Amino acid sequence: MAALRSSILSPLSSPLFKPLGDPFAPLITQGIIANRFLAPTATGSVPPNYTSRRAHYAHPDGDVSNFKTVDCTFVFAGITADQAATRIIKRYIEYPAGVFTQVTWGGQPTVTLSTTTVVSDPINLTIPAGAQFWERTVNLTNTVSLFPLQQLPASSQALGVSDGNSASDLGNSGTITATSTQTTFGATVMIGDIAAPNAKSYVIFGDSIAWGEGDISNVGPKGGNGWLGRALDVHGYPYLKIAKQGQQAADLVSSPSRVQSLLAAMSFTDAVVEYGVNDLRLGRTQAQILADQQTIYGYVPGKRIYQTTITPRSSSTDSWATTVNQTAKTDGNMAALNPLNAAIRAKPANVNTVLEAADAAMSARDSDIWGGAFPPTTDGTHPNSVKAASMAAALAF
Rank of each mutant, 00 (worst) to 15 (best):
Y50H: 15
T51Q: 06
T51V: 07
T51I: 03
S52Y: 06
S52K: 02
R53G: 12
R53S: 15
R54T: 15
R54N: 15
H56V: 13
H56P: 12
Y57M: 07
Y57N: 12
H59D: 05
D61A: 13
G62S: 03
G62L: 00
V64L: 02
S65R: 11
S65C: 06
K68D: 05
T69C: 14
D71M: 11
D71C: 08
C72I: 04
T73S: 14
T73R: 09
F74C: 09
F74G: 09
A77P: 12
T80D: 12
T80G: 10
T80C: 06
A81Y: 01
Q83T: 15
T86D: 11
T86N: 09
I89W: 06
K90T: 15
K90I: 08
R91Q: 15
I93E: 08
Y95W: 11
V99R: 12
F100V: 11
T101N: 03
V103Q: 05
T104G: 05
G106E: 02
G106S: 05
G107H: 03
P109W: 01
T112H: 05
T112W: 07
T112K: 09
S114M: 08
T115L: 06
T116N: 11
T117R: 05
T117C: 08
S120V: 04
D121C: 04
D121Q: 02
I127Q: 02
A129I: 05
G130S: 01
A131W: 07
W134C: 13
N139T: 07
T141E: 03
T141V: 01
T141R: 00
L146A: 15
F147S: 04
P148S: 04
P148T: 01
P153G: 01
G160V: 03
V161G: 06
S162C: 08
S162D: 15
A167K: 13
S168R: 09
L170N: 14
L170A: 11
G171A: 07
G171E: 06
N172I: 06
N172E: 13
S173G: 11
G174T: 01
G174D: 02
T175S: 13
T177N: 11
T179Q: 03
S180P: 14
Q182M: 09
T183R: 12
F185K: 10
G186C: 04
G186Y: 07
G186Q: 05
A187F: 10
T188R: 00
